[in-house]
């Protein structure tokens, strides 16, 4: 490919929590349709960076952001950017599965309902949407008879998949994931990873993880961060096997040998 297509681009992004600088001059370009993982020791700013892209950082007081973030070619700090629209385009999945305490069916339609006029969905349409969303996260067979079940009573793995499924009806372009597997056991982790690989291409994934084996398994691009700076951003395999920076090498070697 001659011209690569980027979904997210940042320019000299700096971020402070009060006096503490959490991000220092971050310049990053995220490839469209790929899975990019963010790794680094805890406190290195990887979650903070992730949370910049849908502007949830602002929800915590005391945050100062400087620099430019372009999502799909549009600066998200422009005055005319609507936050609900931004967060519709850039979905997010959290560490602990957090489905709403309502039925599976309503969980999936919840996002769509708040973004569309009242009663604009017919019964048949909603049924189709729910089926499509659940099918794309491999949950339809398991849950088609349990659509009325309260989502919080499902297994954790199913809950996390449901949290991904409920983003899909809004047709997001980018899905941010903040350690999506840290509450799951090994089997659940593998299942969610499989799902991500399946959905990549249609969506751009950005995943924060402390599990390097996972970064290696699932992502095609990998970013290593250290103390608020972006140290290295390359193809995952290259980053793990022939790291350019000595800090990356130390970090990768520390748990691998």
């Amino acid at each position: 490919m001659a011209a690569k297509n980027y979904n997210i681009e940042t320019e000299n992004l700096n971020l402070w929590y009060g006096d503490f600088q959490a991000l220092i001059d971050v310049n990053v370009k995220i490839l469209a349709g790929e899975i990019t993982s963010l790794i680094g020791p805890s406190g290195c700013g990887k979650s903070t960076l992730l949370r910049c892209f849908n502007r949830v950082n602002e929800r915590y007081g005391n945050v100062t952001t400087k620099g430019k973030i372009q999502v799909l070619g549009k600066n998200i700090y422009d005055a005319d950017v609507s936050l609900p629209e931004l967060r519709k385009t850039v979905g997010m999945v959290f560490q602990r599965p957090n489905p709403l305490p309502i039925s599976v069916y309503e969980n999936i339609l919840f996002g769509l309902r708040i973004h569309s006029p009242l009663r604009s969905l017919t019964r048949a349409e909603s049924d189709a949407i729910v089926e499509e969303a659940l099918t794309s996260v491999f949950l339809w067979d398991a849950l088609k008879d349990k659509l009325k079940v309260r989502a919080t009573s499902l297994q954790l793995e199913q809950q996390q998949k449901l949290c991904i499924a409920r983003l899909l009806p809004l047709k997001p372009q980018i899905i941010l994931m903040d350690e999506p597997c840290s509450a799951l056991d090994a089997k659940g982790t593998l299942a969610v990873e499989e799902l991500m690989s399946y959905l990549a291409g249609t969506y751009t994934f950005l995943i924060v993880t402390h599990n390097m084996a996972q970064a290696r398994r699932v992502s095609s691009e990998c970013i290593f961060m250290f103390l608020g700076e972006l140290i290295e951003h390359r193809n995952t395999q290259a980053l793990f096997e022939t790291p350019h920076n000595s800090k990356t090498a130390d970090y990768v070697q520390m748990r691998y040998a």
């Binding site: 840290s182 509450a183 799951l184 056991d185 090994a186 659940g188 982790t189 599990n211």
Partner: peptide, 13 residues
């Protein structure tokens, strides 16, 4: 008087 290690991925019990 031995060290017994328990290893495994997180959330393995």
């Amino acid at each position: 008087r031995q060290v017994t290690a328990l290893i495994g991925p997180s959330n393995s019990g």
